[in-house]
Every structure is written in C-alpha cells, then in structure tokens.
Amino acid sequence: MFDYNFHWRPVLKTLPDLIQAGLTTLEVASLSMLIGIVLGLCLALMRMNMTGPLKWFAVSWIELARNTPALFQLFFFGFGLGAIGINLTPYTIILTGLSFNCAGYLAENFRGGFQAVPDTQLKAARCLGMNAWQAYTRIVIPQVFRVVYHPITNQMVWAVLMSSLGMLIGFRELSGETQFFASRTFRIFEYFAVTAVLYYIIVKIVLAASRLLAMRLFRY
C-alpha cells in the first residue's frame, strides 16, 4: 500500500527553525490579541453608548470583521491598501488583519459581558462617591473580564490558528516557514505533519496557560 518513502530526517534537522517559527506564531497571535482586546473593548463601549457616526463606525467594523473571511481581511490589508499606495510588510499585514478580526469578535463578547453585569453594581459604586471612570475600571470591567475570560481564551486559540494564513501572504510564521522548507525539499507531507503536531502543542499550551492564569485571577 505504501510505496511512498517517508523522509523525516530533513524535517527533524530543521525542527529548531520550525520551533523558532512557532514562537513567531505565538508572538503574532498574542500581540494581535492584546490590540484586539483594547480595540474590542472600545468598540463595544462605542456600540453601546454612542450614537451617530461613532456608533456606525463601531457597528461596521464589528460586522465586517465577523461576516467576511479572515483571509479576505488579510487581502484587503495587503492588496487593497497596496492599491492606494500603502504597502505594509507581511508582518504588519498579518498583525493588522488579525487585530482587526479579533477586535470585531471580542467586541461582541464584551458587549455580552457588560450586559451580564447588573447595573446596580454601577449604581452602588457611584453611591460610594466613585466617578464614572473609577466605577467602570474598578467595579464593572473586572467583572466583565471574568464573564468574557473563556471566550477570550477561545479567541486566542483562533488567533493562533488564523495566523497560519501568513503562509498565503508570504509571512514566515510556523506555516509560512513550513511551506518554505517543504517546497525546497519536496517533503510536503512530512513537513506539514510535523507542523500539525506543533500547532496542536501550541494550542494545548495556550489552553493550559489560560487555565493556570484563571486559577490565579479568579479566586471568587
């Protein structure tokens, strides 16, 4: 049945490079999640509390991010912006694209989180003399984060998986690096099999780290 000869040695020889690329994957995913969390929080607040152009802006962002393919969004930041003379590096394209996407999804998670915190909490905080900023940052948002912690973890996993699109725009994170080696050695199956295992490990590490962090953060 197998008249195919598996050659694992070239893959193993370049394993350090692949692991290095795996770290790039983690870096891109984490950075775009950080940006996505900040932007997503702003978008959620804009969508809930604003009217007029600002609300319209937030809604458009959120709906575009959620209703078009991530690859389309990357093409937009690549070809699309390129057409009007803004040429981003592959690293910037993937970072902008992923942040745009994560912000849209996270904004909806945050909106659900805000709705889950009773508004009497805000009232109680204001009654103690806290101003709106203090009441939000000290009382409401910490509780929102607890509600959205699990969805944020899921989004982080998605960010890791989505970053593999770097391969299609010439960015050498884990997938791009794999493709580079695979096309040089023609051991496509072997390379991609090892990379699949690496992704699996990265995802498990992310989930385990999230669980550990949750144990430290949420003692109530």
């Binding site: 909490q121 009654c127 009382i139 509780q143």
Partner: peptide, 16 residues
C-alpha cells in the same frame, strides 16, 4: 455622595 451613605434592597456587594 460621600456625605450620604446608601444601602440598597439588593446588597450589591462587589463579587470580585
């Protein structure tokens, strides 16, 4: 509001 302490029907303790 610092002059006026208030206690609600629902106690609204901060759970976190």
């Amino acid at each position: 509001r610092q002059k006026l302490g208030m206690v609600f029907q629902q106690w609204n303790s901060f759970p976190h």
